[in-house]
Structures are given as C-alpha cells and as structure tokens.
C-alpha cells in the first residue's frame, strides 16, 4: 500500500493482504540498500498465515520517495513514528542486517513495548570497510554489485534458488538499483557509525530470536554469536548460507520464525 507519511509518498508491502491493526503485526525492516523485496518470501507467507504484515520501504528506497535517513537513530525514529501513525497494537519487529540495528534502536526509544524482536543475519555492530564506503559515494551501482556478490553464499555463485528460475545476483542487483542512488551511501554510513548496539542489546526484555548465517561475510557469524550473548534468553539458530538469508533459506527461516511466533500466542 502507498500512504502519505510525513508528506512523503511511502510504500509499505503488506504481503498481498489488507492491513488489519487488530491482528498481531509483523514489521519487517530491510537492510542496507535493500527494500521490501528482500522479504519476498516472508511477506506473503506470514500475511497468509493470519498475521498483519508491514514491510516499509524506508525513505528513498524501493517505491518510497523522500531523502534517506542519515543514521540508525533517524531510521528508528522514522519507524517509531510510522508504527504510531498506523495505530498498530501488537508489533513484532523483524530486522535483516541493518534492519537489526534499527530494531535494536527502535526498542530503545519506543514508548511502549514490542511483542518480540527477531534478528536475521544481525549483530550489535556492522562496521563497513572504507573501500565500500567510498565506492558507495562514487558509484552506488558498483557498490551494490559488490555487496550482492559478497553477501550471498554458494547459492548466489551457482545460481541456486528455491524460487524456480530466479537468480540471486540478477535479482539482488536490480532490487538495489530500484533505490535512489544516495540511499546505499547513507545506509552504509549509518551502519558504520552506529555504536550503541551493546547497550541496546542488553536492555532487551521482550522475547528475542536470532537467525544467523554460517557463511555470512557481512555480519560474520562470530560477531552474531557475540551479539546474541548480550541478549537475555535469545533463541538462536544458525543456517548454512550467506548474509542474504531471507532469500537463500526462505523455507527454513519462515519455519523458525513461525515456530517462535506460535510460542508468543
């Protein structure tokens, strides 16, 4: 659906179902340079399982207009305002990569409690190397290609996909090309500059789930495991794939999330 949020055209994927604010809402937060399409195989799946689903395209991403947020805090505030604007009641936030940092920060600034937090291929920090930061400023398309190649596991290299006929690389590059050229640069800087992750992780009181990737080269497994140690009683799973876990292992990820959500009811 498209809404006018803060005077800006904002797209929110709802998984093909109308948003019902009386149901538990799953709010998916995309990663750097991504948009709602990074959750193609989660949005419809959970919408058809009886949840309300929102997958907002952050400003300047996907089908949303506006200027990109310039920090993780700004992203979190934007999401916080959106949740208030949509009058959502019970909300579970599911972040992927940068979306995990936004979820951490959102939990910190929220005036009310979330139902649960789910971290996919996440950590409390996502340092970005200087070469990629520079490249994202000079040539966002090249930087996107580098991230898509680097971010996928062997399934990306070998064009293996659970969705018949789809290419991780080809699809991934084009998803990133849908964003405004400046979006990636600000996303990567936001990740690199974020340093409140440890404190934000320690104050989590709601049920938490982390699904990490064994061959993650963007938020390495080692970093993800340190992160989950900071969270009290964080249910943790490790899947054999790369950083783009939602498209590389959709069935397994959906099953883990579904099982976790069923315990909340």
């Amino acid at each position: 659906m498209i809404i006018n949020f803060k005077g800006v055209k904002t797209y929110i994927g709802t998984g093909g179902k109308s948003l019902d604010i009386n149901k538990m809402t799953l709010c998916f937060l995309h990663g750097s340079g991504q948009n709602h399409l990074s959750f193609i195989q989660q949005a419809r799946f959970f919408a058809y399982k009886g949840y309300s689903v929102i997958v907002p395209d952050m400003p300047a991403h996907g089908f949303s207009d506006g200027n990109p947020c310039k920090s993780i805090k700004e992203n979190a505030e934007w999401i916080n305002d959106l949740l208030v604007d949509l009058k959502l009641k019970e909300v579970v936030v599911i972040g992927h990569s940068q979306g995990c940092l936004v979820a951490l920060e959102l939990n910190r600034i929220l005036k009310r409690s979330l139902e649960a937090l789910i971290f996919v291929a996440g950590s409390n920090e996502i340092p970005v190397n200087q070469f990629l930061l520079d490249l994202s400023k000079e040539n966002s398309q090249k930087a996107s290609q580098m991230m898509v190649t680097w971010g996928h596991g062997i399934d990306g290299d070998m064009s293996i996909n659970k969705w018949p006929g789809h290419s991780h690389y080809g699809e991934g590059n084009n998803i990133m090309c849908m964003n405004k050229p400046t979006a990636l640069r600000y996303d990567l800087h936001s990740c690199n500059d974020y340093s409140d992750g440890i404190d934000a992780a320690k104050i989590i009181k709601v049920p938490a789930l982390a699904v990490l990737a064994k061959n993650d080269q963007m938020t390495p497994l080692k970093s993800g495991l340190k992160f989950v140690e900071l969270i009290k009683n964080c249910e943790t799973h490790i899947l054999d794939c790369g950083h783009f876990l939602p498209s590389e292992r959709p069935i397994e990820l959906n099953s883990i999330i579904n099982s976790f959500l069923s315990k909340l009811k």
């Binding site: 064009s159 293996i160 996909n161 969705w163 018949p164 006929g165 789809h166 290419s167 690389y169 080809g170 699809e171 590059n173 084009n174």
Partner: peptide
C-alpha cells in the same frame, strides 16, 4: 515449474546476467 527445468532456467539467468 520442475526442478530439472529450473536448473536450466537458473543457468540461463546466470549466463545472460538476468534477474530470472
């Protein structure tokens, strides 16, 4: 769709540099 046909499709997408 079919798994053998899908392998062919994914090979073609990779060779052409396409999305799918």
């Amino acid at each position: 769709s079919n798994p053998t046909v899908a392998a062919l499709e994914q090979r073609l997408a990779a060779l052409e540099g396409g999305a799918s």
